[in-house]
Nucleic acid binder design. Sequence first.
DNA 1: TGCGTTGTTTCACC
DNA 2: CGGTGAAACAACGC
Length: 290
Amino acid sequence: MPELPEVETARRLVVSELTGVPVTSVEVGLPKLLRYSEIPTLDPLVGHAVVGARRRGKILVIDFSSDLSLVVHFKLAGQISIHHQRRDRHTAGHPVPNPLGPYPHKATHVTVTFANGTIAYFSDVRQFGWFRLMPTESVAEVIETMKLGPEGIGPDRVSTEHLRSAFTRKSIPVKLAILDQQIVAGVGNIYADEALHRARIHPATPANMVSARKIRELNDAIEFALDAGIEQGGARIIHQKAYPENGFPAVHGREGEPCPRCGGPVRKTKVGARGTYFCPRCQRKRSAGK
DNA sequence: TGCGTTGTTTCACC
DNA sequence: CGGTGAAACAACGC
């Protein structure tokens, strides 16, 4: 489930592995990927090279020469896999299908070939992701309309003050508040669970009942969780089961397994309509105490 | 085989 | 108008 860290990993791969080489061919096997696209085909990319890649929340923007930009949302299950001719491959996004297996496959919907033989595959088993090709000058306006909140990482990341004012009016569960992309951009189901666990906040706590001190801890925890995800190139969650690395993820996808902090079993519940993993012992409803 | 899955939008309602 | 909660939706694998 690609969230900010998975998309950031993809962005870094695009920059390091695809920059500067012209596209020689593009194949789109699933036209509806372009259902929201201003330009209805990827053909204009042929002959042009990647000049950079940006990210805003969970949105990836790949800039090409001659002022064309490809705006991508991975949604639930998007994945990019970059294969160098007779060399290594690099994959980011949803870890299904197996990044080590054969490409292209049934869920591969876009194949982009470059002049040096490198091939970039976009796959999506759920087909919920989308591509929008547009003039580079349109990107800012398109992103503007999404009304995204401040980033969860980086120099201009969300301030505790911003979270506090966003929470004051809201009685919704704090987990749903940090999933709201207009409050903070980039947090999804995995990292919401991880941040709340680290800050020892029960995910169902009404947002306006979280103390100022806890909001500060939560903000720190959001940054920590997102950074941890980036550090390991995205979380490994396969069919709802986590394969943690260095203790991350601590709770998400680990129902019944021991909490790394207290050893008690991780529980799975629902908050809103979202599958939610938490440690009932570490994350008590009234966590003002202790 | 019907259910679970998530990010996002929409809708009814207060 | 804004907040809320629920439902809808995309389509597939298990």
